[in-house]
Computed example of a mutant assay.
Amino acid sequence: MSANSRLTVAAHVLTWIGLYQRRGHEVATSEQIATSASTNPVVIRRLLSELRRAGLADSQRGAGAGWTLTRELSAITLLDVYRAIEPGPLFALHRAAPDPECVVGQGIGPALSAVYDGVEAALRRELAQTTLEDVLQDILKAA
């Protein structure tokens, strides 16, 4: 099973736009962002559409088209980004109900739900403590 990089790419996109705007640019194109993230602009546009729906980014059409942040990096947490792109639970139970006559089948859902709920709560707490400004400052320190 491969790891999901959507949160990483979304944080990259928003942090890049924030830095780009700080450097005096009004909007960033998906092509520019895609170059930084080494991916296809279509992937960036799809991701930015989700971020726009969540109120984290906005787009301008026509002459000077591109993307902007809707708020400062210091006002966007990794939890905000996570919620925008991963609206469902982190873990899922069986798609089909397990055999209720089996002791494991009848008990696996409740046993794992408690664990999964705790893991997800810890994840959300941790993500809420880091803003994209924190991420940018770490990046700039390392550069």
Rank of each mutant, 00 (worst) to 15 (best):
T35N: 09
S49N: 15
V13A: 01
R61C: 03
T68Q: 15
R6L: 12
L112Y: 09
L19K: 04
P110W: 05
W16F: 09
P41H: 11
L19T: 03
T35M: 10
L79S: 04
Q129V: 05
E26Q: 09
S74L: 04
G64R: 14
L123I: 04
T77F: 01
D99G: 08
T70G: 13
L123K: 01
R71E: 08
S49F: 13
T39H: 03
P110R: 01
A97W: 07
L56C: 02
D117I: 00
A84Q: 06
E31Y: 10
T35Y: 07
T29D: 10
A54T: 09
Q106W: 08
G64W: 13
Q32K: 06
V104F: 11
A3Y: 05
H12W: 06
V27F: 12
V9Q: 08
L48T: 02
V9G: 00
S38Q: 13
A121C: 06
V81P: 03
A84H: 07
L132V: 10
G62K: 11
G62V: 08
Q60Y: 13
A121D: 08
G107E: 10
A11C: 15
T77H: 03
L123P: 03
D99W: 06
S30W: 00
L69I: 10
L14P: 04
D58I: 11
W16E: 01
A84Y: 06
L73W: 02
A97I: 09
